[in-house]
Amino acid sequence: MPHRAPDAAPALALRGLVKRFGAKLAVDGIDLAVPTGSFYGLVGPNGAGKTTTLSMATGLLRPDAGTASVHGVDVWSDPTAAKRMIGNLADGVRLFDRLTGEQLIAYTGRLFSLPRDEIVARTADLIDLMDLREAAGVAVADYSAGMTKKVALACALVHAPRLLVLDEPFESVDPVSAANIEDVLRSYTASGGTVIVSSHSMDLVQRMCDHVAIVSNGRVLVAGPVAEVRAGSSLQERFLELVGGRTHAEGPAWLRQS
């Protein structure tokens, strides 16, 4: 799908999302507007509700309240149309790993009804891009963690989505592949695609993202262009200042060597 001129609606708009698991309020009213063409970082401590938020935004987890829409299409009232525009890389889920890498990409292409010859061409491109040529004919169950991540990313890209939602995309991916993928993602946003990435790595977010939202305890603490959020200090410092939870820096006395 070619990238059209920027439209009025944001690539992803979340309004008042709430999700409760038993007694725990995992997401407590999150609002977020991700502008088209932006590279948006979502950061927060473990258990902040990032993954839950992204699951609700991509139509995998029904919110208790609130709405999510992709380029103006409501994810929960028209899931098929909305999901066609989303490329989703979830963290910590299995793939259909009895299939080989190549089969898995071709399978995903067919799920999106791409023409068969188009699938052949795109599969080849993605396999080269992810440097998986040698392992293309091997069952995904036998892949390393990094290779599995890469083939999952390839599957998220195969239908040329307008919005990419990536949960911890570079975890255990080798540095060379990570750099290659970074390049591809940059040119993707430059051409009008939108990326929203959730990560623990402040360095990665500061380096790659132009927008960032800091999430803690199911709420957005601050959101906006990276420069504004940083407000002069590094993103890491700003994050710690907002989220808190730092212990004193020296560590326990018994650990010190002198």
Binding site: T58, G59, L60, P79, T80, A81, A82, K83, R84, I86, N88, A90, V93, R94, L95, F96, D97, T108, L111, F112, A152, C155
Partner: peptide
């Protein structure tokens, strides 16, 4: 892996 299927809409 069902989530990857559900994600395709």
């Amino acid at each position: 892996a069902f989530s990857t299927l559900l994600a395709t809409g």
